[in-house]
């Protein structure tokens, strides 16, 4: 596996990258009109490949460029490598080939320990199985979202956590409409409620990037749509880049700005959602 030195590429703050609207009239014909400014890059991958130790190739030659504030659906049939790609992009799994720049951290294969720490501090995760601690209260589960951040060693239980974190947890619980369940045990919640708590746990980190792996796969269709809507709206309202995997075509079409389809270990298509038809989607799963 090739190795090059890894480096930290500073990313400018979100607010400073938008074309400033000063309200002044154009200065004159000699002044060049401002070039369209791209939102900052959140994830960039070049020639990414992943092969398991047993020789099984998952994907190869993947190029991706995900910009701030985008809501990206990563679709593909079971075993297409969606989750693996997601984990490689955020450094939780080493890739076999290619270069990744995520949240300004450039690395080959896998980030070093310092990069991984910096990455984790800016990312919120939501898993298919929600990963809540069943015997802990909802409030404790949400506050545990602060773990891994500086000074967070007390965040493993709400009774020990800082007061401002307790208040912040109540605020995010209110956003997912579960403030009244703060004292309930997590294992007494329905599947949809548990997933909303998982979203709150991710949001309390104030992430720049929210990663969700099949967030609605284990829920019934109505609850699944509700979860996807909450996800999508909160990500948009908080200015968080959302990348999620799904094998539900409707979820991808309804709750994303852009769809990246994986098929046979390659990017089958990568387009704005408005330019993706149901036929295109069908081609990913059946073509």
């Amino acid at each position: 596996m090739e190795r090059v030195p890894t480096e930290h590429v500073p990313v400018p703050p979100l607010a400073g990258l938008r074309p400033a609207n000063t309200g002044n009239p154009p200065i004159g014909p000699l002044v060049k009109p401002p070039a369209p400014v791209l939102a900052p890059q959140i994830i960039g991958a070049r020639g990414l490949a992943k092969t398991y130790p047993n020789g099984q190739a998952v994907f190869a030659g993947v190029d991706l460029d995900i910009r701030a504030d985008q809501r990206v659906a990563l679709i593909g049939s079971n075993g297409a490598g969606k989750s693996t790609l997601l984990k490689c992009l955020i450094g939780l799994l080493p890739s076999t080939h290619g270069e990744i720049t995520t949240l300004g951290e450039r690395f080959l294969a896998a980030p070093n320990a310092a990069q991984l720490t910096r990455l984790r501090r800016q990312i919120g995760f939501v898993f298919q199985n929600h990963g809540l601690v069943g015997r802990q209260s909802v409030l404790t589960n949400v506050i545990q979202g602060k773990l891994g951040l500086p000074g967070s060693w007390r965040a493993w239980h709400h009774a020990l956590a800082r007061q401002e974190w307790r208040e912040e947890a109540m605020a995010v619980l209110a956003e997912v409409r579960l403030a009244d369940k703060a004292s309930a045990r997590a294992d007494q919640l329905s599947g949809g409620q548990a997933q909303r708590v998982a979203i709150a746990r991710a949001l309390i980190r104030r992430p720049r990037l929210l990663i969700a792996d099949e967030p609605a796969a284990s829920l019934d269709p109505a609850v699944g749509r509700d979860i996807m809507r909450i996800f999508s709206e909160l990500a948009r309202d908080h200015g968080i880049t959302l990348v999620y995997t799904t094998h539900d075509m409707q979820h991808a079409l309804d709750y994303s700005d852009r769809i990246v389809a994986l098929k046979d270990g390659k990017v089958h298509f990568d387009r704005p959602t408005t330019r993706v038809s149901l036929r295109d989607m069908d081609g990913v799963f059946h073509g």
Partner: peptide, 28 residues
Amino acid sequence: DKKPQEALHAIGANRVTVLCGAILPDVM
């Protein structure tokens, strides 16, 4: 249960906080 442990490890929780926050409550 491994799932809560994985969820906390993913966000960078250290072993002691995973023990206190996820393992001990589960096996209490």
